[in-house]
Amino acid sequence: MNNSCEDRTLKLKVFGILREKLKSNTLSIPINNNSISLEELKNCLKELDPHLSMNEINFVFAVNKVICNENVKVSSSDEIALIPPISGG
């Protein structure tokens, strides 16, 4: 049972201003199903922390290092990252 629960946790990488606001470079999000859409995940995140509200800091998702729209479904085997606005150079 424990393994099953572990398998249903999404591990998210967090960077930049979001990492600083959340005081962590990773987030663990338990999910009820094997997969959820990024739109559902975004709603979970907004409930988790007000800093993740679209109104405060904008961000998009990268799944397995590719930027994805919010219709895409993710599971615990995916590498998911929150990407706030970038400013390299």
Binding site: F15, G16, I17, E20, A62, A81, I83, P84, P85, I86, S87, G88, G89
Partner: peptide, 18 residues
């Protein structure tokens, strides 16, 4: 996906709006 945070001479620091 690269981010930068400026450290000012005043002691403040701020993420650059990207």
């Amino acid at each position: 996906p690269i981010w930068k945070k400026e450290k000012m001479e005043s002691g403040d620091s701020e993420w650059v709006e990207g």
